[in-house]
Write a protein that binds this DNA or RNA. Structure first.
Length: 465
RNA sequence: UCCCCUGUAGCUCAGUCGGCAGAGCAGCGGACUGUUAAUCCGCGUGUCGGUGGUUCGAGCCCACCCGGGGGAGCCA
């Protein structure tokens, strides 16, 4: 007869009282009683909370092993799940057998039984998932990812894997990382320039900044698709909201117009929030209590209310009449600055706001030109604390209009030949958007710095681990 | 990239007017207790980010460099 290995999440469930079981995990704390026993708190990542183990002095290895247990040690413990007589937990385990798999030297192990700053924990990115905060962030990140697949599958969207290496540098979303196998110290040259025809792909190649253009190709066949993958930006931006490598979800749907797109974004955001509030209540309570008081009520309010829609022109009007002193002046035609976006979502609306119909001059070439000839069918979703969490648009499906727009921006037709084919053959209205996963995790948890919501952050000058 | 702040013990930080480097936590030793950030007593810990300068004397003042944080731009 072997004892069943169960998770600590399961062991903490009062339904487990009376069971014999085995748990496996890492020691968080040990408190000794000279009365002849010890309390050991063990965490295995399955739950925010620990399981309290009562290790009696009668255990054969009590003095040799139990009393040597340090924070971070890995253990396998068999015992009986009992109703706890102490405060703070419903169940506990009375150990009948305890085995140490690996010690963690108390003098060397960096994680102490106290709070560390997030800055210090970034230096120990390989150990920080063992802390309360980073364990909780990791579980929320997983739940948001899972909810994403659930949501799109449920809405009839197919997952498409778009390429990570791209040979076109014309995705138009910022600076790209070059991918090359040419020797960096002595590359082949022609006419004094690097001969990229000798490179791996016979031409220059880069890490993708967006899967959108390829996504459009599949939407114009499968109808509704989404991508979920890493994206890369070689921009020298040093903020709490930017990463050089981040994960993006990009749905794209044929026959969708701007309003369909906005409604999809709202359903998607609400689905994710509902998912974490229902499935990660212990983690969310932690964020409410220790990271951002008021978080739960704010997220619940988002779920309960329809999103406010506001055209760019209305937004400019609101900002102009706000009486607020802005560092950057507001006028129709200028791009909205962080301070403007923050005012709109945090003060004016106090919740998510969908801005749409931006001046064409400040938006990308592929966005559909509105009938006014001045604006394009773009939409951004802004949320308090984070700012832009979603950016999207209805795409320009009319070949002549798209070509005209490209010409005026100096883009070369031959670079976009396959993208233009989508308009040449059976063109349809379509729309889509991109959501930055890390910004969603930030918004969901209240974590202030984006470097703390991705396991191993990459930012300018930092590629450790 | 620009602006501001910051760097002292393993961690969090104090250090006055330029005059012997000091607290809490962690650790170690002991006591005590169905404890839960346990409690109580005792003990140790330093390239004061680096280099140069001013000075009889620099953690403190000056210059440059490096690291960290916040904000801005760009964006998701």
């Amino acid at each position: 007869m072997t004892t069943a290995w169960i998770s600590i999440k399961e062991a903490r469930d009062p339904a487990s009282i009376g069971r014999s079981a085995e748990i496996r995990g890492w020691v968080r704390t040990r408190r000794d009683s000279k009365g002849g026993f010890s309390f050991i708190e063990v965490n295995d990542g399955s739950s925010f909370n620990n399981l309290q183990i009562i290790a009696d002095g009668k255990l054969e290895n009590y003095s040799t092993d139990v009393l040597s247990l340090t924070v971070g040690s890995s253990v396998v413990i068999e015992g009986e799940i009992l109703a706890s007589s102490g405060q703070g937990q419903a169940t506990e385990m009375s150990a009948t057998r305890l085995r140490i798999l690996g010690h963690a030297s108390a003098t060397d192990y960096p994680l102490q039984k106290k709070q560390h700053t997030f800055e210090k924990l970034r230096e120990w990115a390989h150990l920080r998932p063992r802390t309360n905060t980073f364990g909780a962030v990791a579980r929320i990140r997983h739940q948001l990812s899972y909810a994403t697949h659930q949501f799109y599958h449920g809405e009839g969207f197919a997952l498409v894997h778009t390429p990570i290496i791209t040979a076109s540098d014309c995705e138009g979303a910022g600076q790209m990382f070059r991918v090359t196998t040419l020797p960096i110290d002595n590359p082949p040259t022609v006419n004094g320039k690097v001969d990229t025809s000798k490179d791996f792909f016979g031409k220059s190649s880069f890490l993708t900044v967006s899967g959108q253009l390829e996504g459009e190709a599949y939407a114009c066949a499968l109808g509704k698709i989404y991508t979920f993958g890493p994206t890369f930006r070689a921009e020298n931006s040093n903020t709490s909201r930017h990463l050089s490598e981040f994960w993006m979800i990009e749905p794209e749907a044929a026959f969708f117009e701007l309003l369909d797109n906005m409604q999809l974004a709202e359903r998607y955001l609400k689905f994710m929030l509902k998912s974490i509030l229902e499935s990660c209540s212990e983690d969310m309570e932690f964020f409410e209590k220790r990271i951002q008081p008021g978080l739960l009520a704010a997220l619940q309010l988002v779920l309960d209310k329809p999103f406010v829609h506001m055209s760019y022109t209305e937004a400019i009007d609101v900002l102009t009449k706000s009486g607020e002193k802005f560092e950057y002046p507001v006028a129709w035609g200028v791009d909205l600055q962080s301070e403007h976006e923050r005012y709109l979502t945090e003060k004016h609306v106090q919740g998510p706001v969908v801005l749409y119909n931006y001046p064409k001059e400040i938006k990308s070439f592929y966005m559909r030109l509105n009938d006014d000839g001045k604006t394009v069918a773009a939409m951004d979703v802004l949320v308090p604390g984070v700012g832009e969490i979603i950016g999207g648009s209805q795409r320009e499906e009319r070949l002549d209009v798209l070509l005209e727009r490209m010409t005026s921006l100096g883009l070369r037709e031959e670079d976009y030949w396959w993208y233009l084919d989508l308009r040449r053959y059976g063109t349809v209205p379509h729309a889509g958007f991109g959501l930055g996963l890390e910004r969603m995790v930030q918004y969901s948890t209240g974590m202030a710095n984006i470097r703390d919501v991705i396991p191993f952050p990459r930012t300018p000058g930092h590629c450790e681990f």
